[in-house]
Simulated assay, not measured.
Amino acid sequence: MALLEHFTTPVDTVVSRMRTLDATLPERDGIAVFNRVYLAVTEEVGRRLYAGDFTDPAAAITLDVRFAERYLRVAEEGCPPACWRPLFQFRRHPGVRPLQFALAGINAHIGHDLALAVVDACRTLGCEPAELEDEFDRVGDLLVSLEEHIREELMPGPDLLQIADPLTHLLGAWSLDRARDATWSAARALWALRRLPDLAEEFTDRLDGAVGFAGRMLLTPMPD
Rank of each mutant, 00 (worst) to 15 (best):
T20W: 11
Q89R: 11
A173V: 05
R36G: 13
D141G: 15
W174H: 14
G140S: 08
A121P: 14
I110D: 04
R28N: 03
P86I: 03
A189S: 11
E147I: 10
R36F: 12
F136A: 05
V14T: 02
C127I: 13
A102N: 04
I110T: 08
F90G: 00
T13A: 14
L63M: 08
G157L: 09
G95P: 06
A75S: 09
A40P: 03
A186V: 01
G209P: 07
H109E: 08
F136Y: 13
P81S: 05
D113I: 00
T8G: 00
T55I: 05
T20P: 06
V211M: 10
A187L: 04
G46V: 10
E76I: 02
G30C: 01
L3M: 04
D137A: 10
W84Q: 06
H109A: 13
A2H: 15
T62M: 08
P98D: 05
L170V: 08
G46Q: 08
R47C: 06
F34W: 10
E201L: 10
G157T: 09
V139R: 02
R151K: 13
A68Q: 03
R47I: 14
D181E: 12
P129Y: 08
I163V: 10
F34H: 14
P129N: 13
L72I: 00
W184G: 02
E44P: 09
L72D: 08
R195M: 09
F213W: 14
R216V: 00
V74S: 09
A60Y: 02
A173G: 13
V41W: 13
S145F: 01
D224E: 08
T9M: 11
H149C: 07
Y71K: 04
G172P: 07
E77C: 14
E135F: 01
Q162W: 02
A192C: 00
H93C: 07
Q89I: 08
L49I: 05
P158Y: 03
V119H: 00
P197F: 12
L218T: 01
L193F: 09
V65Q: 05
I106A: 11
P57M: 07
D64Y: 07
T20F: 13
R28Y: 01
D134H: 06
R85L: 15
W191N: 03
F67Q: 03
L146I: 07
P156L: 01
H6I: 00
L39K: 13
M18Q: 05
A117C: 02
G157Y: 02
Q162E: 10
E76D: 06
T20S: 14
E201A: 15
A60E: 05
P57A: 11
L132S: 12
P81R: 01
R188C: 15
F203M: 11
D224G: 11
V33G: 11
D29P: 05
E153H: 13
D177I: 07
F7L: 07
A214Y: 06
D137S: 12
H93M: 08
A23D: 13
R178T: 12
G212N: 06
R138Q: 15
T13S: 13
L176V: 12
E76L: 15
D120G: 04
A210Q: 07
